[in-house]
C-alpha cells in the first residue's frame, strides 16, 4: 500500500458517500444516471469475485464489501425506493449502456492477463469501469444545471483514478516486476474521459458559478 493508492481509495469512498448523502438527504436521484450506477455494480461484482477465495487484508476485504454493497444499494434506491424513484430522469438517461457491456466483454475475451474465468472477468471489470461514467456525463450535459452534490460526486469519482495512475507510476519504479498494463491504459482512458468535466468544474469553482456543461 502506498499513499497514492490510499488517497485514491479514500477519494473513491468519498465519492460514494457524497452520492449516498445526496440521495439520503434530498430523497432524490435527479441528475444521477441509473445506468452508470448499474454499470458500477457490475464492475464491482465482476472484479471482486475473489472476495471470499483470496484474502489480501482486512482493509481490502472491508473496502470490497463496502463498494459492492453501496453500489447495489444505490441501484436498489433508484429502482425501488418509493420516494427516490420518482425523481429519476428516465427520459434523459437513455444511454445504451448494454452496448458498453458487450464491447468490454468482447475486449476482455481478447485482451486479458490469463485466459481464466476470474482473469477475464477482472479485465472486463477494468474496461467497463473506464467507460461506466459515460451515461452519467451524457445525463449531466442533457440536464443542464448540475446540483452541487452531483458535481462533487463526479469530481471525486474522476479524481480517484488519477491517484491510481500516480500509484502505478510509483509501483513501477519501486517494485521490480510490477507491470499492470491493462489497469494502467484503462485508468488513463478513464481519467481522460473526465477531462472536459474537470475543466468546466474548475471554471465553475473559479467563477463561483453554477456548474454548466455545454450541451
Amino acid at each position: 500500500m502506498n499513499v497514492f493508492r490510499f488517497a485514491g481509495d479514500m477519494t473513491h469512498l468519498i465519492s460514494i458517500l457524497v452520492l449516498l448523502l445526496k440521495i439520503y438527504t434530498t430523497k432524490s436521484c435527479s441528475g444521477i444516471s441509473l445506468k452508470t450506477q448499474e454499470l458500477y455494480a457490475v464492475v464491482f461484482v465482476t472484479r471482486y469475485l475473489d472476495l471470499v477465495t483470496d484474502f489480501i487484508s482486512v482493509y481490502n476485504t472491508v473496502m470490497k464489501v463496502v463498494f459492492i454493497s453501496s453500489s447495489l444499494a444505490i441501484v436498489w434506491c433508484i429502482r425501488r425506493h418509493k420516494v427516490v424513484r420518482r425523481s429519476y430522469d428516465k427520459e434523459l438517461d437513455t444511454f445504451r449502456h448494454w452496448l458498453l457491456v458487450g464491447a468490454c466483454a468482447v475486449l476482455a475475451l481478447v485482451v486479458h492477463e490469463k485466459f481464466s474465468f476470474q482473469e477475464v472477468c477482472w479485465a472486463f471489470s477494468i474496461y467497463l469501469e473506464a467507460v461506466a461514467i459515460l451515461p452519467q456525463l451524457v445525463l449531466l450535459q442533457r440536464s443542464g444545471n448540475v446540483d452541487n452534490l452531483t458535481g462533487q460526486y463526479v469530481f471525486f469519482l474522476g479524481a480517484y483514478r488519477a491517484f491510481y495512475i500516480l500509484n502505478w507510476i510509483y509501483r513501477y519504479y519501486s517494485e521490480q516486476h510490477f507491470t499492470r498494463w491493462i489497469s494502467c491504459v484503462s485508468g488513463i482512458v478513464q481519467t481522460a474521459l473526465y477531462a472536459d468535466f474537470f475543466y468546466y468544474y474548475f471554471i465553475s469553482w473559479k467563477n463561483n458559478s453554477k456548474l454548466q456543461l455545454p450541451a
Partner: peptide, 10 residues
C-alpha cells in the same frame, strides 16, 4: 507471493 502481489488493488 505472486498471486498475492497480483490483485492487491481495489
Amino acid at each position: 507471493a505472486q498471486s498475492k502481489a497480483r490483485k492487491d488493488e481495489l
